[in-house]
Design a protein around this nucleic acid. Structure first.
Length: 425
RNA sequence: GGAGAGAUGGCCGAGUGGUCGAAGGCGGCGGUUUGCUAAACCGUUAGGCGGGGUAAACUCGCCUCGAGGGUUCGAAUCCCUCUCUCUCCGCCA
């Protein structure tokens, strides 16, 4: 949610930010509504001040046993004006709120401009694709050949975009998650959290998924939302609070299932595990002061990268351009892992600084020791990493000519020392 | 599923029609005392919106005691609806 005060003070930069997102200017509309709203509010306050004053006088007069009749009539007459100003003011406030709730965060200044993913800027690469003396296969071919990845039975159970893993692949998935959690909690100062997977609308609003992106989410019959990412519960851990500045930064990590309806992704990545209705992810969330959030984003991205380094998976880091960034983000780095089977880099993590955009929606603040004022915190989130996609990356990068998969050294302790995943017999 | 209780400031917790944005405590902040720390004592301390003022200090008005509506000249306090939380019983991983 953007700050109406800042829009009022600087409508040009508000419109400029929208333009960078490829959207039409809105300041004229917003400010017109705002002016009408403030007109009603000030009228309301005038009437209320008079009512309060007169009511006190009535109390005083009655206490002295005097006649308060004329004053009482005057206050009674004010009621209609008060009611009208309240109704008009509230209607306009809601209109403004609804409008602002649907507008995306303003991009940070150093975010490259661009219409879509083509405008993203590669920042760095790590590692090099494995030298394979054979034509690399895609993960679904490998998995099915191993007899450990079954899309057909998954379709019978649940339909398209689901998978059943078995045996060593299932264990590999669990190992990856445990490895990631251990790294983030042990090395990077994150606190492991086991959050709810069903949340209320207010929670989904807080992170910016509602009201605009309800179509991407699954919902239960009694109106819980299934989390599309642990960002949702983890970020909302600080909602409606005034935090002690000394507690910051707060760093949370969680391994959770994620549920996405992928409503707008018909026809994309229809084969395999790349795009599923359900997958698991180890999420990173930081809550910081405004002064430290930029540095925190670098730190968080570094933590996600470290997972890939330790697994020996080649990747690149990309700065998303204005046209490719998510709704709540002011700056985002995507980490893309190399998939030999596709001969392409594919997104495996997305790390974003949301500034105070989510904090405003959640009413999450901290007490600034210098000014003693309650200020909105900054929130960041990143995948550290998407477990399903990491599993794919391990399979494709560590595949051998016979279709078996070498287990990266870092994971072997989590797999009881297993070195190679071979066909189940 | 059945029965009951409750929602007040950063936290705990008083407050059943007027001077209550709200006692008291905790916590925080400032100070006194102290060789230092602790303790004690004194003072201070809600958020939001809008106006004045130099973006500061300061100051004025309005709103907010879960949300919405009602009664009343006047509501934290009375009435209605909703939401949420908790306790007990039942069932259950």
């Amino acid at each position: 949610m953007l700050d109406i005060k800042r829009i009022r003070e600087n409508p040009e930069s508000f419109d400029a930010a929208l333009k960078r997102r490829g959207m039409a200017p809105q300041s004229v509309v917003v400010l017109a509504l705002d002016a009408r709203h403030r007109g009603w509010v000030s009228a309301l306050q005038r009437h209320q001040a008079r009512r309060n004053e007169a009511s006190k006088a009535i109390g005083a007069a009655k206490a002295r046993g005097e006649d308060a009749g004329p004053l009482m009539n005057e206050v009674a007459a004010l009621k209609d004006s008060i009611r009208e100003a309240e109704e008009e003011g509230r209607a306009l406030a809601k209109e403004i709120e609804d409008l602002l709730a649907g507008l995306p965060n303003a991009p940070a200044e150093d975010v490259p401009d661009g219409p879509d993913a083509a405008g993203n800027v590669e920042l760095r690469r790590w590692g090099s694709p494995p030298a394979l003396a054979f034509k690399p296969r895609q993960h679904f071919d490998l998995g099915e050949a191993l007899g450990l990845m079954d899309f057909e039975i998954a379709a019978k159970l649940s339909g398209a975009r689901f998978v059943v893993l078995k045996g060593a692949l299932s264990r590999l998935e669990r190992a990856l998650a445990a490895f990631m959690l251990d790294l983030h909690t042990g090395t990077f100062g994150y606190t492991e959290v086991s959050p709810p997977y069903l949340v209320r609308s207010e929670t989904a609003f807080g992170t910016g998924n509602l009201p605009k992106f309800a179509g991407d989410l699954f919902r239960t019959t009694d109106f819980f939302w299934l989390i599309p990412t642990a960002e949702m519960p983890l970020t909302n851990l600080v909602r409606e609070q005034i935090l002690d500045a000394a507690m910051l930064p707060l760093r949370f990590t969680a391994h959770t299932p994620c549920f996405r309806s992928e409503a707008g992704a018909a026809g994309k990545d229809t084969r395999g595990m790349i795009r599923q209705h359900q997958f698991t992810k180890v999420e990173l969330v930081s809550v910081t002061t405004p002064e430290t959030s930029d540095a925190e984003l670098e730190c968080m991205t570094g933590a996600a990268e470290e997972v890939l380094r330790r697994l020996g998976l080649p990747y690149r880091v990309v700065a998303l351009c204005t046209g490719d960034m998510g709704f709540a983000a002011r700056k985002t780095y995507d980490i893309e892992v190399w998939l030999p089977g596709q001969a392409a880099f594919r997104e495996i993590s997305s790390c974003s600084n949301c500034g105070d955009f989510q904090a405003r929606r959640m009413a999450a603040r901290y007490r600034d020791p210098a000014s003693k004022a309650a200020r909105f915190v900054h929130t960041l989130n990143g995948s550290g990493l998407a477990v399903g996609r990491t599993l794919i990356a391990v399979m494709e990068n560590y595949q051998q000519a016979d279709g078996s998969i070498v287990v990266p050294a870092a994971l072997r302790p989590y797999l009881g020392g297993l070195e190679v995943i071979a066909a189940a017999r």
